[in-house]
Design a protein around this nucleic acid. Structure first.
Lengths: 153, 153
DNA sequence: CATAAATATTCATTTATGTGAATAATTATG
DNA sequence: CATAATTATTCACATAAATGAATATTTATG
């Protein structure tokens, strides 16, 4: 069985190269690449990939928005990254300090940056420390708690 | 239940702070922090964390080598990172070109750098492309195939 | 607005992962 | 080298994630 992520990458590539108008067609194209999947799985995949249905001149076509491929890190991924690398999460005022193993800070910060949460204005990463600036509408405390939850701390 | 990664981070912290001479002691220290775990789990954790048993003057003490905390990314983690972000892996001579979604290259390259494989001399990451230099004793083809396997491609 | 087509969701099942108890294997010690 | 202490592994089980078939829901179309 092909892995879920492999299938989803393949879907991304297929959508970038061809026009796909419905789930059934995508199921067939996947099968042509040797990947078996049901319409139900395709539906879930498109949802998880953030795919949208475009209508251009009577034709409907699925596509993955730039914003989805360029930025969005799924919450599930952010959770894994934080679980793997975030050792501690403290806060002071609207600033959250995340601690990671030495040298790992920028990996985590990059994932956070790409997760485009409304609660985070931005991050700055050192070697084993990340400063996370909480947005005005929330608090450092709440954001720190959020990261502790993500990291399983 | 505390997550596995939480428990393992806690073990790292405990070992950094105190002298732990056997699994049973570590089980107790974990319990004192509110984390229940059996000796079997502790054994597996220490293995996965790359812990070593040091002997200093009759005393035996567990520790996690610098190389483990600073560099080693577990194969399992590298597999997840590649599965999530590596879209393609091609090679030419001893160079492997990995393709990722835009902006994600450095996340993957960082994980590869920290996985200290003997087969990889080093990486250079752009925006959506990583150059991986294969070591002399192997080939770009073999390394590319390795990454395809990791990524589920 | 009725009907067909397409898509999302539920449910049951499979598969993968994590776990502790028991035990095997290893390592230390007299 | 025998024995005790420690550590790794096996096994059975629990939990979570992924999946397809069936079905409910939504969307398009005459």
């Amino acid at each position: 069985m092909a892995s879920k992520s492999q299938r989803q990458h393949l879907i991304e590539r297929i959508l970038a190269e061809r026009s796909v108008s419905d789930h059934g067609e995508l199921v067939e194209l996947l099968a042509a690449e040797g990947v078996e999947a049901s319409q139900a799985s395709v539906s879930r995949d498109l949802d998880e990939l953030g795919a949208v249905k475009l209508r251009a001149g009577g034709q409907t076509v699925y596509a993955i928005p730039e914003i989805a491929t360029q930025r969005a890190v799924p919450l599930e991924t952010l959770r894994r990254v934080c679980g793997d690398w975030v050792v501690d999460a403290q806060h002071s005022q609207n600033l959250v300090v995340l601690t990671t193993p030495p040298g790992s800070a920028h990996v985590v910060a990059s994932a956070i940056d790409r997760s485009d949460s409304d609660d985070v204005l931005g991050t700055v990463a050192g070697d084993d420390t990340i400063l996370v600036v909480a947005a005005p509408h929330t608090t450092g405390e709440a954001v720190a708690e959020h990261f502790r939850e993500l990291a399983g701390l």
